[in-house]
């Protein structure tokens, strides 16, 4: 069965570039692109939601 990928939306105008989501993602899905976070490797996402929970800036929305 094909794995259903989540969607990770990053609202760039809210992101303040704190790196929290990138650093604490257990599977390194995210990376910094310039000053804002971006999705690098969606395949690795285990839908733990920690990036969304820990984003202080309401800039990440994960739809599992």
């Amino acid at each position: 069965m094909e794995k259903k990928l989540p969607t990770i939306e990053i609202i760039e105008k809210y992101c303040k570039g704190c790196h929290i989501c990138v650093e604490f993602c257990p599977t390194k899905v995210l990376e910094m692109q310039g000053f804002v976070a971006a999705v690098k490797n969606l395949d690795a996402c285990i839908k733990c939601m920690q990036c969304e929970l820990r984003c202080p800036d309401f800039a990440i929305k994960v739809t599992p």
Binding site: K13, Y14, K16, C18, R54, P56, F58
Partner: peptide
Amino acid sequence: KLPHIWCPGCGHGIVMK
């Protein structure tokens, strides 16, 4: 009202969520 006034990395937004 967003983005809020808190600095990058400030945890207040996490608590607000």
